[in-house]
Simulated assay, not measured.
Amino acid sequence: MNLELNKKLISGTHFTSVQDACFQSNHSSVISFLNPFSYYEVAKDHTLIEQVDYYFSDGSLLCKLHNLFLDKITRASFDYSSIAADFLHAVEASGKRIAVIGATEQENAKAVEVLQQQYPKLNIVFNRNGYIEDKDAVVNDLNEAGAEVVLVGMGTPYQEAFSTYIKNRLLAPAVIITCGGFLTQTSIKPDYYHPLVKKLGLRWLQRMVMHKHVRERVLKQYPKFVFKYFFTMLGFKLKKQI
């Protein structure tokens, strides 16, 4: 549990203003998203807490627990049930050069193909898989391509670590934003979530049905997260630290 990380979570209602500020900034910024699994992965590394500029909650469970103790926040997630479409439209409209990094080589290529169909004017200048051995070589590729937006889908904590690594090594200001499994999901189906699933807020259930690793997280790790988060935050509150 990390109180500093908790207090860094921003409400999804502010995503557009954060996005616009990052687009206009003269330095690189990193935006990322937390759920009950990724929360503790990030909390282990103080560098990730410090170096990621903006964190949002990508699930209702974390929002509800957070709202019991701290200022109210709403969900923002990089998928088509939340902010992904608006963000990609904004990148397309701005003409900014975007790099797409993550997933396997095949998934990445398919996701880029789908994105180009959905957003014909999206200026994708670089793409590659998320299995990176030489980060400096990728930094060089991004600088050569003049990437102004970098979409990173590697899973936590790898995507945050990579994003913060390139943040201070890019020659020009860039908006670096993580997207978790978005590229893999997009390679499977352009709009991954069933409309009814989105309407009922059951994205976690669809992911559980479709992916074994998600089932393991939800069944084994999420209950531990709820228990630990609630009682740790309650302890902070009783000590009047929040």
Rank of each mutant, 00 (worst) to 15 (best):
E107Y: 01
M154L: 12
H46L: 13
F225N: 08
D86M: 01
L61I: 15
E133H: 15
Q159E: 12
A109C: 03
Y193A: 09
N67I: 11
N26D: 10
G201T: 12
S163R: 01
L68T: 01
D191S: 10
I124A: 01
F236V: 10
P190N: 01
I31Q: 02
L196A: 05
S60A: 13
F182L: 08
K44F: 09
L115H: 04
S81Y: 04
V197Q: 06
N108P: 07
I166N: 00
K44G: 08
L68R: 08
Y165L: 01
L196Y: 13
P195S: 02
V91Q: 04
D71M: 07
F225G: 06
K110L: 04
K189V: 07
F33D: 00
A172P: 04
G59N: 13
D141L: 01
G201M: 13
F225L: 05
L48R: 15
I176S: 00
Q241L: 13
E148D: 02
L234W: 15
S11V: 10
K44I: 13
K237D: 12
T164Q: 05
T186D: 07
E160F: 02
L68I: 04
I73K: 01
L62K: 03
T178L: 03
L65V: 07
K96P: 07
V209Y: 14
I101P: 09
A145T: 09
Y54K: 01
Q19C: 00
F182I: 12
S187D: 03
G155M: 10
I31R: 01
P36V: 14
L61K: 12
E41K: 13
K228W: 10
G102D: 06
V218P: 10
Y165H: 01
V150C: 07
T178H: 07
I31G: 05
K220H: 12
M1Y: 12
S163Q: 07
C179G: 03
S11F: 13
S28L: 14
R207H: 08
K220S: 12
L202T: 15
Y80W: 00
G153I: 03
S28T: 08
T178P: 11
F15E: 02
I73A: 11
T178M: 04
T186V: 05
I166G: 00
K64D: 08
I166V: 11
E160L: 04
S28M: 03
S17Q: 14
F87L: 14
M210G: 04
Q206G: 12
A84G: 08
V42G: 12
Y192R: 06
K199H: 12
Y40W: 11
M154A: 04
I101A: 05
N140P: 04
M208A: 11
I83S: 00
F231P: 07
S187C: 00
K121Y: 06
